[in-house]
Design a protein around this nucleic acid. Sequence first.
RNA 1: GGGUGGCUAGCUCAGCUGGUUAGAGCACUUCGUUUACACCGAAGGGGUCGUAGGUUCGAAUCCUAUGCCACCCACCA
Length: 1077
Amino acid sequence: MEIDKAYSPQEKEEKIYTDWQKKGLFNPDTLNRKGAKAFSIVLPPPNVTGTLHLGHASMLAIEDLMIRYKRMQGFDTLWVPGTDHAAIATQNVVEKKIYNEAKKTRHDFERDDFLSLVADFAEKSKETIRNQVRKMGSSLDWSREAYTLDEVRSKAVKKVFKMMSDDGLVYRGYRIVNWCPRCHTTLADDEIVYKETKSKLYWIKYGPFVLATTRPETKLGDTAVAVNPGDERYKDMVGKKYMIPGVLGEFEITVIADEAVDPVFGSGAVKVTPGHSVVDYDMAMRHHIKVKKIIDEDGRMMANCGKYAGMTTFEAREAIVKDMQAMGLIEKIDEDYDNKLSVCYRCKTIVEPLPSSQWFIDVNKKIIKKDNKYFKNGASLKEVSLKVVRDGEIKIIPERFEKTYFQWMENLRPWCISRQIWFGHRIPVWYKKQKSFLVMASRHGEAKNNHEKLLNSDINYRSYTLTEKGRADIAADAERLKREGHKFDIIFTSDFERTMQTAKVFAEAFKAEIIPEKRLREVGMGEFDGQEDVPEGPFDQLRNNFEGWHHNSPKGIESFDSLKIRVESFLNEIKAKYPDKKVMIVTHGDPLRIINGYGTDFSDEEIFNLGFPGVGEQIWIDLARKKERVVTEEVLDSSEWEQDSDTLDTWFSAGLWSFTTLLPKDWDGKDFKSADMKRFHPTTVLETGYDIIFFWVARMILMTTYVLGEVPFENVYLHGLIRDIDGEKMSKSKPETSIDPLDAGNKYGFDAVRLSLLIGNSAGNDIRLYDEKIESYRNFVNKLWNVARFILTSVSDISVDTKNLVGDTLADKWILSRFNTLKREVTRLLDEYNFSLAGEMLRDFTWYELADWYLEIAKVEKNKDAILMSILKEVLAMWHPFVPFVTEAIWSNLNQPEQLIVSAWPETQKDFIDEKIEKQFEVIKQITVGIRNVRAEYNIPYSKDIEAIVAVNSDAEMIESNQDVVKRITRLTEFKVVEVAKGTEYPQPEGYVSGGTFSLGTVFVNLSGAVDLSKERERLQKELDSLEKYLSGLEKKLSNDEYVKNAPANIVEADKARQLESQEKVTSLKAQIAELK
RNA sequence: GGGUGGCUAGCUCAGCUGGUUAGAGCACUUCGUUUACACCGAAGGGGUCGUAGGUUCGAAUCCUAUGCCACCCACCA
């Protein structure tokens, strides 16, 4: 048989892969193992942003190893390929590209035109990725390839969004979000990274306070000052309002007490900017403080910032600090303050928190889903996600990451899922188009009850007229409005006297019709009606306790819910009935809150926090901002409806990956059921990098348990990062240490790249990779090739029956024992996900036992065809999951009925495992090494024949029967075995030197007189010294009664045996040294 | 501030449910073209297992402190 001397991967790999794929061996349907136990993995889809890196290569190697192993074990095995559209990331890449190539931005294109550019780019990336993935040898079932943005996945996304919307889990809200001014979109909490920076800390004079801030420009959005509730210094100030001097004049703040404030830091007082700080926003919510937005989506100061409007936040900061200094408002400035800036994880731009209307998933809302085992009795997404891992339904490897997972999941906030980018799944929500319908709402003028500070809401009990001032103010307002050119046809007014009178003044000015409307009446004040109206009086206290007032009616006060229903029903009605009229509304304070919040995405509490205009003030509201909204999977008539322009966070679709990949190509979108789903879901293992445990793993668990009532996977195997030789992340800026898997594979073969990523790589730990490492595995692959080459060229019949093996010689029995131990151990290690150790054991066996010893012996002992062929076949099988190409290449020479990829995983034959045989072989090895030692020490080339004598006190026969082996390996002309009685020494023959003492005796090598006595003495003495040291340690240990008493018997026995053996060796060595004198 | 991982031979890493004289690869030294392989073979040098305590008959392995290095999380203005 002609076999190449060296293995050249470049010639073989591609052909082998194509052949596997052509025969459909990656496809479980071709293998037809339905009914067998399933083993499935879905490939973590690489982003279509470009090409693969070593992280991908590592992922592919590990997953392919698992899949091939299980396939060989007869499992119904599926590995699904796919790619991820990676919304922001991909859009960024394409934006950069069009900017570099044509200096254009996406806004120079129509949305659809831009999207088709991105789609083209994505298609090209996919093709590149596919080719790279194939090169790695990945046995993926390409017939099931998926893409997070293809038709099936789009249908699934819409369906899940609708489900969640129906369950009230997805909602639109006006909240503070993380905003990237560069990407022009929101970011999820975990899409933010922190950057250590030095910045200035400004100590500013702030009314009665002095406080520190890194962002003086946000002072324009301040609405409160917060202190710690336990802080005695500010105790009396809590709850009070103060006027604070600022660069745009005075403004009002409320002092609040909140645990979030650290009394020890700075002055213990914090300015609160709820519009532009997540922490401040939360505090504002807790204390019903107004949110004031002053920075827009471009990171510029808004129109409400006076002369600073239009500046970037940085420009504004400088300008404001300058102005504050001029006003004497800056106490001091600390330079070099350590600060952590939040930046966008994609583009590293500083993130600006700002309030914005977005879609969220409520992870804390308890829902009941009867058809879902996890939600049957009511649970939140968060609770279920925690439970399935706590209960062990999902096992994370390595286990320590479970802790990380719990910690993150427990602290999970509402998940913002809308993104203001174009590429991605467009949010399946449609809004009814409608004409703008601007109405003015006015509070009545000052009435007598206002003047006398009395509460009044019971029209039947008492009703108050306007004061003179009230009338005059309204008349002036009417004049002003007229001057400004406003017209009104109808005035709807609350039927209280003060509102009716106000309406009349307006009606006369505008010649408008008055329609009294009960639904616009003041909020019912219950038992407080008629009482004194003081700020923070009993009525205010009850109403301002929103939780208590929201749904309930304490002391007869009309609830917020009731107020909202009647006012909104009125607004809805006029919007429908009077679309062509100019409408004015005259009403009271609390109903104005509702009008203020009408059609916004504010929560009830936030609407309440909006407050209302003062007596005699007006607001303008476009009633069209409240739109009819449907969540639907359908495409609606675009003349009547328009779709939400936002897209979904890429992790929304990625979160569904474990099961959407198992839907058929022609899925009807009805329910999440399919043959594959039944057969392969939950998937067996999710293998991915620990860096995306939050982004992806957690989200898949959250989404899948909700949608299916199943976990997405039973096991999570997390691999580490691949680092360069210096332990740093590989990057394009360090090309000298950065390795491209393709280049490395083309140079050393992809088997070698795989091995370098598998051996030495344990779960959850980072590994370093560099050329020398890959090279050493290339060398191993070549060694394996040559092992096969030797066996194939030396056996007389490669088709020899390997079923019933019989070991004739000691070496045969030894290798069979070792090999079966190996099979047992490797199988166990692979089952325990310890791929690295399994690979190491395989390598050690292949190289240091099979090649170094057994094959050498096979050159002497003949008739080993069956054993050699059997071991070759099974060794190849065990290596196959690690190095599929070279093993299949060798296999093709073996005249086998089927490909190695689908052949059976070797069974361990325990009967062959024999410790006694292994011990005996150790003796032969020791004799051999002893003789080789002498050759090395005395520089005797192998071309020069020598003689040796072995003196033993037992097993002489065994040694004698192996003498041919020893003779050949060590090149002896003569090998004599002498048996001496135990306790007596064999006198060192003249002209011989000791090759070392071993467990049974001593080996002597004939130097034909050329013995260097002093050298020999030195060598023996050295051996004796170390041995005596060892022995004295042993003796000390054994003379310790505690040890003998406490240690397990077998341990003590073993030590005793060692002691005995060492004593014999010492005696023998001493005798030899004595002989030399 | 909380948490996790690492610290073992010159380098990269195994070993760590406590019990052979602590291993491998690379590098190094010496020798070698013995009919599979120089992408090879033989032999060898090299480590008080970060430090300090403790538990134990016995610790690289368990516990407690602690020092570096790396990473993750968190609302210190």
